[in-house]
Design a protein around this nucleic acid. Structure first.
Lengths: 120, 120
DNA sequence: CATTTATTTAACCATACGGTTAACCTTCTC
DNA sequence: GAGAAGGTTAACCGTATGGTTAAATAAATG
């Protein structure tokens, strides 16, 4: 019955996206799958630091690593777009509830206005 | 020229959403604006802890507090839906780039297939 | 005015995060 | 095989986060 453990994927996904370097990495990996070193050049960060960011993204399921046949040392990173779906979905739900709140307020305001008119 | 300081709003927004308790608070506040105590009942959390979560949401701009005329002790919290827009927008951009990547792969695959056919 | 009510802030603590340096794999390359 | 290349992990350290208890604020209430 612990609420905090109900959606660990959303937690880690949102958390992974809360860092601008990681978002930039996502953006670069969306252009095309890249090697870690390639990212390090563009992000201007030490390979070690970048590797940790990659691990955060990997654990959140947002990126996947795959080997390449030529050189087994390098791993290619690719965005796993499916993992964004829960995030998108949550935000869409927010939008939906927001609209419902707007409608509720609108009808409330209209009722209040009608009540004021009938009172005078 | 510091990349990390370019989008502090997105950072704090994503970070604020990376906690399931805070997401639940958002959900409750979307149903209707509520007082802090009301949230504490539903979230099952000490008022102090909840207040800090509220501050995180407030600093991220996701919720706004407003006073109420009846009792000036209580503050009503309300979702500030506009603040979700940058987040949504960023994710939409991801989706867009993802589609571009899909198209690129598709054309690559088709070319490869055509090349194989023409070779035989 | 003292008390209760509603909530936030302060102080404290344990834990988590992020960067750096150094060490470690693994696989090319000679 | 020795060494270099490409990356990841380990150890360390400062700082941020989150919860708790206790104190503070502010206003309704008796």
């Amino acid at each position: 019955m612990d609420q905090r453990s109900s959606k660990p994927d959303l937690d880690s996904a949102f958390n992974a996206l809360s860092d601008s370097s990681r978002r930039e990495m996502i953006r670069l990996l969306l252009q095309r799958p890249r090697r870690a070193g390639e990212l390090a050049q563009n992000i201007c960060m030490s390979p070690q630091a970048l590797s940790r960011h990659l691990r955060v993204l990997r654990k959140a399921g947002l990126v996947a690593e795959e080997s390449i046949e030529n050189d087994a040392r390098v791993r290619i990173y690719r965005v796993h777009a499916r993992a964004f779906q829960p995030v998108q979905q949550w935000l869409l739900q927010v939008e939906e509830l927001w609209r419902a709140q707007l409608l509720a307020f609108k009808s409330y305001a209209e009722n209040a206005q009608r009540d004021r008119k009938s009172k005078t």
